Computed example of a mutant assay.
Amino acid sequence: MIIRQHMEAQSNTSSILVPDFLLICFPNYQTWQHWLSLPLSLLFLLAMGANATLLITIRMEASLHEPMYYLLSLLSMLDIVLCLTVIPKVLAIFWFDNKSISFSSCFLQMFVMNSFLTMESCTFMVMAYDRYVAICKPLQYPSIITDQFVVRAAIFVATRNGILTMPIPILSSQLRYCARIIRNCICTNMSVSKLSCDDITFNKLYQFVIGWTLLGSDLILIVLSYSFILKAVLRIKAEGAVAKALSTFCQSHIFKIRASELLFSDLPAIMVSSPNNTGIQVTEFLMICFPGMQDTQHWLSIILAPLLVLALAANFVLLFTIYQEASLHEPMYYLLAILSVLDVILCLTVIPKVRPSQATHFSPSAR
Rank of each mutant, 00 (worst) to 15 (best):
C187W: 08
L246M: 11
W299M: 14
S193G: 11
I87V: 15
N114V: 01
L214F: 04
S37F: 04
L224M: 15
A326N: 06
E239R: 04
F249W: 09
Q251R: 08
I186H: 05
E120I: 12
I144S: 05
S172D: 15
C250Y: 15
T360N: 07
P169W: 02
K204Q: 15
I222M: 08
L171F: 14
L54C: 07
Q33D: 06
S172R: 04
S63V: 08
N98P: 00
V157H: 07
Q358L: 12
S102A: 05
L22S: 09
M119A: 12
T165H: 07
I16W: 12
G211L: 02
Q174E: 09
S227Y: 11
R59K: 08
Y29V: 03
I200M: 05
V223G: 05
C122H: 08
M110Y: 07
L23T: 04
E330W: 05
S365L: 11
F124K: 00
I210V: 14
S143Y: 15
A245R: 00
F96L: 14
R160S: 09
S121P: 02
V209R: 04
R355K: 13
V157W: 02
S105N: 14
S37W: 03
M48E: 11
S301V: 13
Q5T: 08
H65G: 09
A47T: 15
E8T: 00
I155E: 11
A232F: 01
A366Q: 11
A50H: 03
P306D: 08
H34D: 07
R59Y: 10
I345H: 09
L175K: 02
M287A: 05
G292R: 13
V112A: 09
L319G: 00
A359F: 05
